[in-house]
């Protein structure tokens, strides 16, 4: 099974999580979580973006298509965007996308937008722990995965 490629045991389901993190807040928050040695599951893989508004909804869809089990987008707190207003765009776009995904039968727990500032290492780790356990409980994403993408 492909989803198990990041774990030793084949029995335990380990989700694949893609996290888009804004360079100015959440990516630095993730670094801070590391500096403080706060654990969160290795299933989370972070992609650095300059701002949460750089995340095209297509990236989220593509992640699901390629077999991701959950996608989380982290940006600056409202009002604190490094580029003034990028996180508002992200919030609006993702609200639309998530409601469409919900309509298509993708559980709401698989997608999330979270605000994590550069100083909130603990919040980053908590968020990731919570998100991974939510997605693990939901199980494998079968609905959107394109089986042709499996090798």
């Amino acid at each position: 099974m492909q989803v198990n490629n990041s774990t030793g045991s084949k029995d335990v389901f380990r989700p694949k999580i893609v996290a888009f993190c804004c360079n100015w807040c959440s990516y630095a928050g993730a670094d801070l979580a590391g500096t403080n040695r706060l654990n969160y599951p290795a299933d989370v893989k972070i992609i650095r973006v300059p701002c949460s508004c750089r995340v095209n909804p297509l990236f989220v869809l593509q992640a699901f298509q390629r077999g991701a089990d959950g996608v989380i987008i982290c940006g600056c707190h409202p009002g604190d965007c490094h580029y003034t207003s990028g996180n508002y765009y992200a919030r609006r776009r993702m609200t639309l996308l998530f409601s469409m995904l919900d309509f298509m039968g993708i559980e709401k727990g698989r997608t999330r937008v979270e605000w994590v500032s550069a100083a909130e290492g603990a919040k980053f780790a908590d968020t990731m722990n919570d998100f991974v356990s939510t997605v693990t409980a939901l199980g494998e994403n079968r609905r959107l995965e394109d089986l042709r993408c499996r090798k």
Binding site: V18, K45, R54, L58, F59, Q62, A63, A68
Partner: peptide
């Protein structure tokens, strides 16, 4: 941070 690059990263992670 081009669309192509970020999509390639998504692919590589998944």
């Amino acid at each position: 941070f081009s669309t192509e690059q970020l999509r390639a990263e998504v692919d590589a992670i998944c």
